[in-house]
Design a protein around this nucleic acid. Structure first.
Lengths: 239, 239, 239, 239
DNA sequence: AATGAATGAGGTTTCATTCAT
DNA sequence: GATGAATGAAACCTCATTCAT
């Protein structure tokens, strides 16, 4: 009987792994029959372990999340707080890129019985939260970022990676995007009055003429134009 | 006869608009029967105008793209180059947020007969290209960004917006992400030798202690830490 | 109004002729939409003239039968009784070969409202009957053949012609089969009766060597072979 | 497991047999739903065994052909060459009469994936070929007949039988037609060659009055009528 | 009278799920 | 516990027929 149980567990694993691959390859639309076939088991066996298709999809996602929790722990253990978070986010996006359909099933469709996912999802969010908190305490990440921002950012990153026709540039784009989380370059004054950037809101951030980004400087009169050219042009216009 | 044609066109519009809504609400999985029902027409009528489901989905997407091309033109007409691009990207993401499933059908699944979409897609890409070129010539956007980066970025932005449980913060996150495209703060030296940042590769870009982003300055000795705090902390650790 | 009527009649003709072709080419399964398309008219026009598909099929068959009645009269007018019948049967089979599906719709399926066909069918059977009676009175055809035998024989002939992969041999097979109707070799007493062409029935009708049809001549010794070549070949074989 | 397989096989048989009947009764137009209903199984079961309608039709035909191959072997085993062929052809026509629609699906429509039928069809043609060859070697059948002639002849025979409103006369007509294959009356020299039954071909094979088949006897004067009744009737007529 | 859009029942096919073996 | 055959609802698509223009 123990042997039987071992058999059953092995079968469960097989089905789960197969489903993961097939979902990734052909989308969530594949029939369970196909999965059973690819797993080399009968349709009934799939149903014994996963009483419905939704449950199977959830199990696949939970498995994925679980493995990501492991990755989070590894990153937390071996890197300084900020880099741990960025490393983890990148890894999540990389390993999830092929699984877009599965992820979307969860994120997009609100009709999912969140309860079932619960365990894995909470552990995942917990891990994410810890990494974020540490990174923020280390000052590596903007203070106004929350866990749910990260979730959304992950979804976005996966979408970018999966969508970009050029894998290398897709990767690069994701890194560029993640950098948006980093604490922006700050000055002494800013650092001394944390949370109150001097010009954060009052100073113009873009050239009033051409829209170019203006450099942020903590002191002095904030510029209104990106340079003499634009200033002149605006002056002309104002007459 | 002309009247009959008008009727037909109206019907086509109705079906198209209904399909747009229903796809957005319930995903691409909905049956054509349901769409027909919601549109208040017979199943055959849907079929008459869109001979297959794929064709209907394409039509919905094409319609959407077409409207976006209009938006692109409006932005190009009424804003300075850089802001036109950013405004357009934001609008695309905002108006596409509800249509995630439709967009994904296109971006995710490579099996689409691109030919059919062709017209609308090319016009969309053309518009995107023009906005990007102008923005880059105005120096408002990084020179190393390409159109396909923008496509991927859009997909990512839509995913973020749709995924974030808090709409407001989702919006904010998207804006933050788009800013990654902006030309990074540069100095005179950099501006004079465009494309050749002084320390671009040799200087450390992140604080060696906390990982915070380091300001890039074209002259002087590049800093290793983000500030005295980290320098001190590193010093302590090195003893 | 008279003009309108002429238009309508012309339309009816067009539809009928088109239906004939299309049925012959693609079977009875084709949709009326296709026929309307090929005829260059609207679906409604088809229905105005032929209120249902069955009625259209019947009309096509009736038209065909009507034209065959004409052929029967021509044969009756220009050939000796026996040959008139055989010529007519061959012509029927030849012209019906492409129309197998239509014919079958009538002969096979007992569910047809015979009443509607009535007129054309009766005229056709009448013509057939006359040809048969004359041929039998001339002694060219077995006395025990009835009109319904001929109908069945026609169906069989059409099937053979349509089925045989080799058109030429199909034709030959049909002729061979029709010959089964001819009066079998009879005794001297029978042959001597007046009003009978001398060799009409006793003379061999095909070359005993190669099976080619032999010309029928009322006088002289009937040939056994189609020419010197076959005669020589048979002579050699008999040694 | 074996039991399940046995069940499945039984089900397959049921569906096949039902389809055979229903096709014969109502034509190839019947819906698979109807067949499933008549077979007492679900629509899915039909589909499991025959993944498409075409495949089911083919299977029905293949089954039929297979059974005919058996019949061919039986005839070859128990009759002299010539009679074996004729007996077989008659049996084919008789048993196929009800199945006209199925046969036509094959013979009429060239669009069939012959590959699938292949096996059964080739075996059938092989059997036909053997019977024909033997019959020709025995001199019972014209030397210029080929297998494809027989195929077409069979189609024609089936059409005749199915079409004739009077079954008995239909049968008679078919026999008459098949006789067209027999070696035509030959000359003395030919007749005297050894190994040939005396009256095989020259003696009348059917009653000159009523067309009934005459017994073939190798010796004695061959009868001209099937019995005294017909002889008397013919006598009366000749006066 | 002609057009062709609209209709909707019905056809084939698919597949999640159950159940006998 | 595993198997895979059976089920039947539902999807997509077709087309004979009607009807507004």
């Amino acid at each position: 009987m123990a042997a039987a149980r071992a058999d059953a567990r092995r079968n469960r694993e097989t089905v789960l792994r197969t489903a993961m691959c097939v979902f990734a390859e052909e989308g969530l639309g594949v029939s369970l029959g196909r999965i059973a076939q690819r797993a080399g088991v009968g349709a009934g066996t799939v149903y014994r372990h996963f009483p419905s298709k939704d449950i199977l999809v959830e199990a696949v996602l939970a498995e994925h999340l679980e493995s990501l929790v492991g990755a989070a722990d590894r990153w937390a253990a071996r890197a300084v707080p900020g880099e741990a978070l960025f490393g983890f986010l990148l890894e999540v996006i990389d390993t999830s890129a092929g699984r877009l359909p599965v992820c979307e099933a969860i994120t997009t469709d609100g009709s999912w019985p969140r309860a079932v996912l619960g365990a894995a999802e909470q552990r995942f969010h917990g891990a994410l939260e810890r990494l974020l908190r540490d990174a923020q305490q280390a000052g590596a990440v903007r203070a106004d970022v929350r866990v749910d921002d990260l979730s959304a950012l992950l979804a976005g990153g996966v979408a970018m990676r999966s969508t970009h026709r050029d894998q290398t540039r897709g990767s690069r784009l994701v890194r560029l995007t993640l950098d948006a989380l980093r604490t922006p370059p700050v000055t002494k004054a800013f650092r001394d009055r944390p949370g109150k950037p001097r010009h954060e809101t009052t100073a113009p951030r873009h050239c009033a003429e051409c829209g170019a980004r203006l450099p942020v400087r903590p002191t002095g009169r904030p510029p209104r134009y990106c340079g003499p050219t634009c200033r002149q042009r605006a002056h002309r216009r104002s007459r």
